[in-house]
Simulated assay, not measured.
Amino acid sequence: MAGGFSDTELAQLRNRFKRDAGLLLNPESENDEKSKEKADSKPLPRLNRHSVFWILASISLTYYVDFFGVILENEEIKSWWFNVGLVLLTVCLCLALFCIVYLEWLKGIQHYDQEYPAIPPITTSAFIAASFSFNIALWPVWSFFTPVILFTQFMGVVMVISLLG
């Protein structure tokens, strides 16, 4: 015994230091282990109960409240706020298409948020402002149900898009 350690404890400590030193000197082996773990793990199924629920809820709500009929024909909608919401939503969709189609598909940039760090906060801000605008515009029609209706529609669209991707 040297300093309170047995020979087996010293051997275990020595082996651990060798392994850790090997990982520090050869970091590819750690990445190889992580990539093997990723390859072994199964991806989550795109169609699950959660996505089916939101898609069916969105479809049912669209039918029940005559969503598109109300949007096109109702005179109570505050058109200025609705138009602001449409412009902001168009900004969000244009930025998303820029990221997905141009940066990811054409340029091959996978981490576009690192290449263009201003895109995520601009898109998020525009989307939040658009949701507020739509809520203000449609409040006279559906009252306190407006945020619930719009959130359900949003989730349904997101789930349909996730099935496509």
Rank of each mutant, 00 (worst) to 15 (best):
Ala11Gly: 04
Gln12Asn: 07
Tyr64Gln: 09
Ser133Thr: 07
Thr8Asn: 04
Val87Ala: 11
Asp40Ile: 09
Phe132Trp: 03
Lys34Ser: 12
Phe151Trp: 09
Trp139Pro: 05
Thr123His: 05
Trp80Met: 13
Ser125Lys: 01
Ile122Gly: 00
Leu47Gly: 11
Arg49Thr: 15
Ser79Asp: 09
Glu76Ala: 10
Val158Arg: 02
Trp80Leu: 14
Glu75Gln: 13
Leu10Tyr: 10
Phe17Val: 15
Pro27Trp: 04
Glu28Trp: 04
Arg46Phe: 13
Trp81His: 05
Gly4Arg: 01
Val91Met: 03
Val141Leu: 06
Asn74His: 03
Ser29Gln: 14
Ser35His: 08
Thr90Leu: 09
Ile161Thr: 10
Asp7Trp: 00
Leu13Tyr: 02
Ile149Glu: 00
Ser143Ala: 13
Ile119Gln: 03
Gly4Leu: 04
Leu95Arg: 04
Pro120His: 03
Ser79His: 03
Glu37Thr: 10
Met159Lys: 08
Glu9Leu: 11
Leu93Thr: 11
Gln153Arg: 02
Gln110Asp: 11
Leu61Thr: 15
Phe145Leu: 14
Gly156Cys: 08
Ile55Lys: 06
Asp32Ala: 13
Leu24Lys: 04
Asn26Lys: 15
Asn135Val: 12
Gly108Ile: 05
Trp81Thr: 01
Phe82Trp: 12
Trp80Lys: 07
Met155Leu: 15
Glu9Cys: 05
Lys78Phe: 08
Arg16Cys: 03
Ile55Gly: 12
Ala118Arg: 08
Gln153Ala: 12
Asn26Glu: 11
Val84Glu: 02
Ile161Arg: 03
Thr152Leu: 12
Gly108Phe: 02
Tyr112Val: 14
Ser29Phe: 09
Leu93Trp: 07
Ala96Thr: 10
Ser35Glu: 12
Ala2Ser: 06
Leu56Arg: 04
Leu163Pro: 08
Ala21Cys: 00
Tyr116Asp: 02
Ile59Trp: 03
Gly69Gln: 00
Ala39Asp: 14
Leu138Val: 10
Phe127Tyr: 15
Asn135Pro: 03
